[in-house]
């Protein structure tokens, strides 16, 4: 479904992605893990066309992407952002947020589609005419997912979709995302700083550091803790909670 090879990207003079290769099969779920500045989100943003300065090949559903994305691309792939408080327009009602993409793509029947999208993410129709500030964090993230789903894409790019949420809400949203992938046959690329979240959601995982993929693993390997690269090992240990002795083994990877 998605093939990325030799992807390099730059922000001004900063080389933020270095030869990133990723391949995700249809209905697959790929996880990118890394700390801030690792370039994990930049991979998603480059695919969606939010980064201008890049080189390499990105092939989505057999089609090689050029410098500009067309409308068809956005019907195929949608993105969910990290911060549900920032990704919904503060002055638009939920209804408007969901109706707009339908109108842009001329899909018609927007009323029914909005209701369906809200149902898909488990939100009552009563939320439809609220403003984002009248919703809780989890509800907002559901709206953001509904907005991504309303164009009936085959691919969802998830940029830390639960890191701003409470753990109990995170569980609900992760379950929702898992169910949607099964029911709608979606393909995911998920970015997170949390190894456990990615291990739970994804089949294949890549660990990134300073713009490079340092190690690839399957969910099974992660479960056994058989990571080889010292950086991934360190991330793995850090995910286990606070242990004074372990902290002393940490190295800075600058």
């Amino acid at each position: 479904m998605i093939e990325i090879s030799k992807l390099n990207a730059w922000f001004d003079d900063n080389h933020v992605l270095k030869d990133v290769d990723i391949s995700v099969p249809a209905n697959g779920s790929f996880g990118l893990v890394g700390e801030s500045g690792s370039g994990k989100s930049t991979v998603l943003r480059t695919v969606t066309g939010l980064v201008d300065d890049w080189e390499g090949t990105i092939t989505v559903k057999g089609k090689k992407l050029g410098p500009k994305r067309d409308k068809d691309f956005y019907r195929l792939a949608q993105m969910v952002f990290q911060d549900p408080f920032g990704s919904l327009h503060p002055r638009h009602t939920i209804d408007r947020i969901l109706t707009e993409p339908v109108n842009i793509h001329g899909l018609g029947n927007s009323d029914a589609r909005v209701v369906e999208a809200l149902t898909q993410v488990g939100l009552d129709n009563a939320f439809r005419f609220r403003y984002p500030h009248q919703l809780s964090g989890g509800q907002r993230q559901r709206v953001a997912i509904a907005r991504a789903l309303i164009l009936e894409p085959k691919i969802l790019l998830l940029d830390e979709p639960t890191s701003a949420l409470d753990v109990s809400i995170q569980a609900e949203v992760l379950n929702l995302l898992g169910r949607l992938r099964r029911d709608l046959g979606l393909t995911y690329i998920m970015v997170s700083h949390d190894l456990a979240v990615v291990a739970h959601m994804c089949d294949d995982i890549a660990i990134m550091n300073h713009g490079r993929i340092v190690e690839r693993a399957t969910a099974g390997q992660l479960a056994e803790g058989t990571l080889e690269h010292p950086y991934s090992q360190q991330l793995y240990k850090a995910a286990g909670g606070y242990d004074r002795a372990v902290v002393d083994t940490f190295v800075d990877w600058d």
Binding site: G86, L88, H92
Partner: peptide, 20 residues
């Protein structure tokens, strides 16, 4: 994010300026 999200819906520049 909400402007970029709208952009990723295929919103044109004109509609982005006027509506968002």
């Amino acid at each position: 994010d909400y402007i970029e999200a709208a952009r990723l819906q295929g919103t044109s520049n004109f509609a982005l300026i006027i509506g968002h």
